[in-house]
Design a protein around this nucleic acid. Structure first.
Lengths: 130, 130
DNA sequence: TTCCTTGCAAATCGTTTGCATAATG
DNA sequence: CATTATGCAAACGATTTGCAAGGAA
């Protein structure tokens, strides 16, 4: 169960840190493949899962069928553009208090929430529709 | 493109209306199978998708790998118990205003949000741990 | 040398789809 | 009769896993 160093895991983590667009596993694979042409998709998945379990990265279930990964583990929210599919970070004040609102009259413990916002991003909304 | 009646679709919708625990497709299948032993899983999926597209039911992506379905299409929030996996409704005041908070300083249009809460449900938290 | 990690391929799991047949309008 | 819906099985896409070989401690 002790963790051993692996250059592949290192490269995956490093790649994720360079990106703020929350790539999917296959995007990670495509990019890390340039540095390690023999790396396998299985290894990418294994390490993404490992890193997420260790809390070094965050795994996002956005409901689009693929998981997205984010090297930024600080508390923040995401926005998904319904036109281009882009996933972007939001800088917004904390909405932690919605946990309390959810707890009112609820017979159980609210530990947290998952929230993401959707709509049309700035770039897409200034585009002429084709 | 015109919709024709189907007893299977009717049964699926009716079954969903009797449940407030947000069943998955295979649970729907297992139950409707009792009434229509020959119904196929494909038909269940097709009709769940159809009903969701028509807005008669709601499809929930909760990040647990399976989609859940809810006949209650009114605006409300869900709670997922991290111990037993149960999905329950929350009666809480609207938190629509988080859309505005998200929009502050954001260069795009926030159309809405998806939020669900997690924690330990009342039943699980009063249970002695095994 | 121990045991974690890899690459590869096969397996899983949830969901979708093609097709010939059955049911609806 | 025209067309939609069904059952069945095969296809799919994302992710996981078994295994023998490679690499780190």
């Amino acid at each position: 169960m002790a963790l051993k160093y692996s250059r592949q895991r290192e490269a995956i983590k490093e790649f994720l840190c360079t990106r703020k667009d929350h790539p999917t596993a296959d995007v990670v694979y495509a990019n890390v493949s340039r540095q390690y042409p023999n790396i396998s998709l299985g290894t990418v998945y294994r390490n993404l899962t490992l890193l997420a379990d260790m809390g070094e990265i965050r795994r996002l279930h956005l409901g689009d069928g693929q998981d997205h990964f984010d090297a930024d583990t600080s508390e923040h929210y995401h926005f998904i553009c319904q036109k281009c599919g882009r996933v972007m970070d939001l800088q917004m004040e904390s909405i932690e208090k919605i946990n309390d609102l959810a707890g009112v009259g609820f017979d159980g413990q609210i530990a947290g929430h998952i929230t993401y916002f959707y709509g049309v991003c700035g770039e897409c909304s200034t585009q002429k529709q084709q």
